[in-house]
């Protein structure tokens, strides 16, 4: 753990991160921190490199240079599979639920990190009528009001429901840092409100959130701080109300209509 005792400790710390694809700089010397228990939004125009940051933090892409630390542990070169144990889990922009599995089974896979022993892998839990693992997963679904979908095949569910189940699955590994890639995209107003409730409940539990999101009202209601990316570079950082006034940010992303 880091020894930043006076302040909140830092849950996610990114320092001097860079990444190029075929000579194009996707991320250029990016540094920012997410304090524990806070929510930070990563915003910027399409192609700014927001999802690339997620992919590097979760280990899907190797970094060119720079460091990534989760809960004070350097994970820069850690295999992607081990990073969830270091404390960082994520959801996906294009919802990556396993289509051949039921909702409940998807959540059970999400619990793997806390049940990774050989003995746990070979326990015939399906023979136990209400096994602890199943109860736990149903409980997490119920907290989001989604328990009615437990037995459904995920492939057949509405987009908004799948999106929220993807979020529930990300919370089940016991990671304290959650990266959410456009959680509100494609949701109707009712679903967006439900999602806002879900995220506020997660924050109340002490979880740290890094959110990529285009809906500024949503960002405003969930995140304390924003980091603005443009062409892979950080052009502003701070509370949304302050960042909004920034000329560079308005030119690059938020535009004039946000003045109202």
């Amino acid at each position: 753990m880091t020894a930043k005792s006076a302040q909140r400790s830092v849950a996610l710390s990114i320092t001097g991160l860079s990444k190029s694809f075929a000579g194009v700089r996707a991320i250029d010397n990016l540094s920012f921190e997410v304090p524990e228990g806070r929510a930070v939004a990563l915003i910027g125009p399409n192609g700014a490199g927001k999802t690339t940051v997620f992919n590097m933090v979760s280990g899907v892409y190797p970094v060119d240079c720079g460091t990534i630390a989760v809960n004070g542990v350097d994970v820069t070169h850690m295999p992607s599979r081990k990073r969830i144990a270091a404390g960082v889990a994520r959801s996906f922009q294009n919802i990556r639920l396993m289509a051949h599995l039921s909702v409940l089974d998807n959540l059970l896979v999400g619990q793997h990190r806390r049940n990774a022993s050989i003995a746990a892998m070979l326990t015939p839990y399906r023979l136990v009528p209400s096994h602890r693992w199943k109860r736990e997963a149903l409980q997490a679904l119920a907290e989001s009001g989604l328990e009615a979908y437990a037995k459904e095949n995920v492939g057949a569910l509405p987009y908004g429901v799948r999106k929220r189940i993807d979020l529930v699955r990300a919370t089940l590994a016991g990671a304290n840092v959650l990266m959410l890639d456009e959680p509100a995209a494609g949701l109707n107003p009712t679903e967006t409100n439900a999602l806002r409730g879900d995220l506020q409940a997660l924050k109340a539990r002490g979880l740290t959130l890094l959110v990529v999101e285009h809906d500024m009202h949503f960002v405003d209601s969930v995140c304390e701080n924003v980091v603005v990316l443009n062409f892979g570079q950080k052009i502003a950082e701070g509370p949304l109300s302050t960042v909004r006034q920034d000329r560079l940010v308005r030119e690059a992303y938020l535009g004039v209509e946000e003045e109202a």
Binding site: S58, K82, M98, H112, T123
Partner: peptide, 25 residues
Amino acid sequence: STTRFALYLTAVKSDPTVADLLGVS
């Protein structure tokens, strides 16, 4: 087929990237 092992077989087949990110080898 009643174990996590069987569940992970399907998970790995269905989406190896996500299975990996959830910590499954």
